[in-house]
Design a protein around this nucleic acid. Sequence first.
DNA 1: GTCTATAATTAGATAGAC
DNA 2: GTCTATCTAATTATAGAC
Lengths: 217, 217
Amino acid sequence: MTAGSVSTPAKGRQRVNRGSEAIRSRLVESALSEFAARGFGGASTRSIASRAQAHQPQINYHFESKDELWRACLELLLAELDAAITERTQNVDSDDQMGTFEAIIRGLVTFASRRPELNRIMMHEGTEPSERLSWLVTTHLQWRFDDLRIRWEELTATATVAPLRGELLYHVLLGAACLLYANAPEASLLGLQPNDDSAVAAHADSLVAMFLGTSGP
Amino acid sequence: MTAGSVSTPAKGRQRVNRGSEAIRSRLVESALSEFAARGFGGASTRSIASRAQAHQPQINYHFESKDELWRACLELLLAELDAAITERTQNVDSDDQMGTFEAIIRGLVTFASRRPELNRIMMHEGTEPSERLSWLVTTHLQWRFDDLRIRWEELTATATVAPLRGELLYHVLLGAACLLYANAPEASLLGLQPNDDSAVAAHADSLVAMFLGTSGP
DNA sequence: GTCTATAATTAGATAGAC
DNA sequence: GTCTATCTAATTATAGAC
């Protein structure tokens, strides 16, 4: 445990106290790892709590339910994804649509490699309708899908890129960029080292070439 | 245990009797659907049996365990995949490496679209090491991975195709070809109709163009 | 806020009548 | 082969002492 987290009561006015945030953060980090590995139904709150060095009822104290804990995981991961993308696009002239799209592709690959949990969870959840999936799509995914599609269609109209419909771009790109890392345990058994730095860079280069047609330098 | 081992002995010589095969087949079909939707840990044998109009203990009678039922599902699905690919490659001159690879891509997309369960199960299982995953990789996946990689590297040496390392081909192609269908429930919520015939054909055309560089006819 | 105990439900697997 | 009943273990959530 971190300093001062144990038994002092909350005295914050608008904020929960620091101890609360520390345990909440540990629980979220542990939970996203378990949800990513086993899916929502396969993950157990006991195992999540144990990995966070906490007791199982603390999950229901700090979060309303297993469902709410899952939502907290996704909001953290999506915020990290946005940060990773923005970090790359902000260095590109926003009028440069091609350069911006290239930055997005490179950001996606890099993020998928070092934080595979987001894509793992999305692949688990996408296989069956559920309240969780509806919440995820309407709250967080739909606008990202629309944004990427519009960027792609604008690019298609003004430059020579891969011949791919706007509706297909999202899943084709995400699948090509993320499956290797989402299924890294499988890739390892196949003899690969998917997170090797030079392999990640080569992967991103290939996708930039295949989607944006920049095969030569 | 194998067939006929439990109480009443099988009277078939080389084959189990017909009734057995009918219920086994219903259980496998039901199980692969549940494993695909919820993952191994999320699927329940009661629900699988109920969908097959059977009782839960019949799973342990006809299969050794939930694990063995899962293996039976994967052997069925992989046999169907092989049939779908062979159906397309057998009409191509086997010396035509480019044409053969194109047939493989089209076969993968078509199969992923009409039988998404195989890719769903593989995406679920690939996120965490397990005995199931090790069995799947060593028994069924490794040789497919090697075969595809060798075909790709031969193609790379003799023709102009996408600039993509052999180690990356498998996951990049499968991700680009299968994620849309594996995550069809998510795609539907995003407003897509991934299994629309013309969309599947356009998807396959795009992948052929992006990987094999056949953008013009 | 933490932690023990436990409630209420569900899991996979088995025993034994038929 | 089928089906009821049941065993053992694991699940999420809650109650209440501290």
